[in-house]
């Protein structure tokens, strides 16, 4: 059964941060830009354009996360993070001295 990953989806975190940054810059660029600000950036309303870029970036990440959600095939047990193929042996060093990770032959 498809299940959401134990780790939160990083793509949504990125989307959220840039949504906030982007909207703030858009508002500043549209409503609170003075002549001095424009002059500083050589006539470009850089806040506005950066805001647009960040909102687009945010939308891309949100869209990606929505289209391809993180799916963990089968949770290996309480607390284990997505079991990688080949099972790296989540608690490697518990059984003995150095070198117990195994030579990786199998």
């Amino acid at each position: 059964m498809a299940q959401k990953a134990g780790l939160f989806d990083l793509r949504l975190v990125i989307a959220m941060l840039f949504a906030i940054f982007g909207v703030v810059l858009l508002v500043v660029g549209l409503g609170f830009t003075e002549e001095a600000d424009l002059a500083k950036a050589d006539g470009l309303n850089i806040n506005l354009w950066s805001g647009v870029g960040m909102v687009v970036l945010s939308a891309l990440f949100a869209g990606w996360a929505a289209l391809r959600p993180v799916i963990v095939p089968d949770p290996g047990g309480p607390g284990t993070v997505g079991p990688g193929p080949g099972g790296p042996g989540t608690v490697g060093p518990a059984t003995g001295g150095p070198g117990t990770a195994g030579p990786g032959t199998g």
Binding site: G6, L7, F8, P78, G79, T80, V81, G82, P83, G84, P88, G89, T90, V91, G92, P93
Partner: peptide, 19 residues
């Protein structure tokens, strides 16, 4: 804080559980 929930072994903590 969010990542802390996924840490249950030294390999999780030091090598992200290879995940």
């Amino acid at each position: 804080f969010l990542a802390r929930r996924s840490v249950s072994s030294s390999l999780d903590f030091l090598l992200s559980g290879r995940s």
